[in-house]
């Protein structure tokens, strides 16, 4: 009896055999939805896990996709920033080229006006060390045919005159220098005077008689009487007219050329023809 009892406990084997047969049955019996019962049972048992796995997978995939998108956006952002920087540089270079071309075109017009050998184009290589640009250094000198007292102009007007000429470089005294003097006249009234630098950013038109008609905004041009500057080149505009002081009156002139921003100039070796603005 004890042997029999000990043999009466093949529960595991019984469970395995019954399970095996149940699985076989379930794989054969069709369920309500047309699939095998085994499939449906496995599906219904596994569906929560599958849903959880799907949720986790989709969540992870979503996070990954989000991260990848962000990463891609970041990379694109960097690329676009680099592109913007590059384009900005290109745009600045293009703008610089455009302005340079405009300046050179203006200078070329002057050169054509003076003839092939009558003009020397030069770059400004240095300015006065302090304050307004009273003197300039240009990159052409005696070896280029530049000599003392030759007038220096730009496309906008008179700059000054050469006061020193060395091989390859020359010093130009601008019309802002208090020691400079340019024979000038008012374009509107033909009142004559001498334009002298005030040491600052303006000039003064001396020897204007008390009764002369001078108004703010009048254009001051060279008169050519000093035999240095060609006649009719623009010097500046009258910005202030003072009360009479004895026989003359104070007339303040702002140069037309911005000497602080000047980059290219022309040295006139031959006299230019009178500018149209020189005659009333």
């Amino acid at each position: 009896m004890p042997r029999v009892l000990s043999q009466r406990k093949p529960y595991l084997l019984l469970f395995l055999l019954l399970s095996l047969n149940l699985i076989l049955m379930a794989s054969s019996v069709r369920g309500a939805r047309g699939g095998s019962l085994l499939e449906e049972t496995v599906m219904s048992v596994a569906s929560p896990f599958l849903k959880a796995a799907s949720w986790i997978t989709s969540g992870v995939a979503g996070l990954w996709a989000h991260y990848a998108d962000l990463r891609e956006v970041e990379l694109e952002n960097r690329r676009l920033r680099a592109q913007v920087g590059s384009l900005t540089l290109e745009a600045r270079a293009a703008e610089e080229t455009r302005q340079e071309a405009r300046r050179l075109r203006d200078l070329l017009a002057l050169r054509e006006e003076a003839g092939e050998g009558g003009i020397v184009a030069a770059r400004v290589i240095a300015r006065g060390a302090s304050g307004p640009a009273r003197t300039l250094l240009i990159g052409r000198g005696s070896s280029d045919g530049v000599s003392v007292n030759l007038p220096v102009i730009s496309s906008r007007g008179v700059v000054g005159r050469v006061i020193e000429a060395a091989p390859g470089v020359s010093k130009v005294q601008s019309i802002l220098d208090p020691n400079s003097g340019v024979a000038a006249l008012l374009q509107r009234t033909r009142v004559q005077g001498v334009l002298v630098g005030e040491g600052g950013e303006t000039c003064r038109l001396d020897f204007v008689s008390e009764g002369a008609s001078v108004e703010v905004g009048d254009v001051v041009v060279t008169s050519g009487l000093d035999e240095i500057y060609p006649k009719g080149r623009i010097l500046g505009l009258v910005v202030a007219v003072g009360e009479a002081q004895g026989l003359t009156r104070y007339v303040q002139v702002r140069p037309e050329v911005d000497l602080q921003r000047l980059e290219e100039v022309l040295v006139l070796r031959a006299p230019l023809t009178a500018a149209p603005g020189g005659e009333p």
Partner: peptide, 15 residues
């Protein structure tokens, strides 16, 4: 018959 049906019954019967 359904495979496993009689297998299940005979297993249970034997037990």
């Amino acid at each position: 018959t359904i495979l496993g049906l009689n297998g299940f019954k005979k297993t249970l019967l034997a037990y």
